[in-house]
Simulated assay, not measured.
Amino acid sequence: MEEKPAVAHEAVDHGAQPVHHHHSHAATSRHGHGHHLLTVEDLSVSFLMYDEEAAAMRAQGDSRADRGRLGRYLHAPQREVEVIRSLSLSVHEGEIVAVVGASGSGKTLLADAVLGLFEPNALVRGRIWFDGRPMDAAALAAERGRGIALVPQSVASLDPLMRVGRQVEGMPRGRGAARRADAGRRRARRRELFARYGLAEEVARLYPHELSGGMARRVLLCCALMDAPKLIIADEPTPGLDLPLAQAALADFRAFADDGGGVMLITHDIELALTVADRVAVFRDGTVVEETSVAAFASPDTLAHPFTRQLWHALPEHGFVVTTEGSPLC
């Protein structure tokens, strides 16, 4: 992927040219070292599935009595089911990009692709760059938990049988003195994170079931930040939280972005996302139909896609008006 020289690119006025490089920019978008923090281009994810209808037809036409149900699937033809298609988006340093779409639309599958997590029957096509480098599945896996960290959507991701301090610190590396030194470094880092996010030192000895919902969310964030990532993928981080806690959780991501990191915030709560994000990628039918700045949501006239305009009309402050341009987000 060719990158323009840093000086020339930084000279671009993103306020005057909100769309270039095949995607949108906010007025504050910046390209550290002359490239995007994350670029996803033309991503498609499909799965090889057994064609049950064809299998049933084949079984009906087979007169051998011993073929049975197992044989129906062993000899069934397979078909490719595409879940994500031709998806492109980007994340810049210092910004939050909200990927907004209906529940079950495949947003988590996008997160898995960026993290290099693929099911054995997955077919993945497209191109991903992270911090200016082209990535394959192995390279993405190597960045997982380090350069790219995940804040999962469920606090059930925490090990119920392990104290949360140990979970945040993780396993020290090396042997002997080097291992002890790394354990000390990780303990100090965990204490720093706990202090930053208002978690008392005593919390380190608690088990997940002893935490409140807000505490558990902050523990998940500390796990993600442990190895100082450049990019956080937050997958539905606010369900189950009341509004003050949800706003506090998003404020933590805002602080991370303001410090120079990037955040991909995956959510179906567009109203909440608009309070913290810099740009919005509207996800529908397995792809991004529009990627635009939050400022564009000031009016439906500045939104390009009919479905995005329909989302604007469906917001509470706009009267929950349902138009004929698309289906509402749910």
Rank of each mutant, 00 (worst) to 15 (best):
M1I: 08
A8V: 05
H9N: 14
H9V: 11
E10H: 07
H14S: 15
R30H: 08
R30A: 08
H36R: 13
L38Y: 03
T39I: 11
E41S: 13
L48M: 14
Y50T: 05
R58H: 03
G61T: 14
A65Q: 05
D66C: 07
R69F: 15
G71C: 05
R72G: 06
A76S: 08
A76T: 02
S88C: 03
V100W: 09
G101Y: 05
G101K: 02
G106I: 01
G106N: 10
V114L: 15
F118N: 13
A122N: 07
L123I: 14
G126K: 03
R133M: 14
D136R: 11
A142M: 10
R144H: 03
R146L: 14
G147D: 06
P152D: 11
V155C: 10
A156Q: 12
A156I: 01
L158D: 10
L161V: 01
M162T: 07
R163P: 00
V164Y: 11
V164C: 15
G165F: 04
G170F: 02
P172D: 09
P172G: 09
R173A: 14
G176W: 01
A177T: 06
A177Y: 12
R179E: 11
D182N: 14
A183N: 05
G184H: 09
G184W: 05
R186D: 07
R186W: 00
A188P: 11
R190A: 15
R196E: 08
E201F: 03
E201Q: 07
E202C: 08
A204N: 05
G214Q: 03
A216T: 00
R217F: 01
R218T: 04
L221G: 02
C222W: 00
C223L: 06
C223Y: 10
D227W: 14
D227K: 11
D227F: 13
A228T: 07
L231F: 04
I233N: 06
T238D: 07
Q247Y: 00
A249N: 13
L250F: 03
A251F: 06
V263R: 13
V263Y: 02
T267V: 07
H268N: 01
A273D: 00
R284Y: 11
R284G: 08
D285T: 08
D285I: 01
V288M: 01
E290R: 12
E290A: 12
V294W: 10
A296L: 00
F297Y: 14
D301K: 05
Q310W: 00
Q310R: 08
L311P: 01
H313F: 13
G319H: 10
V321K: 15
S327L: 15
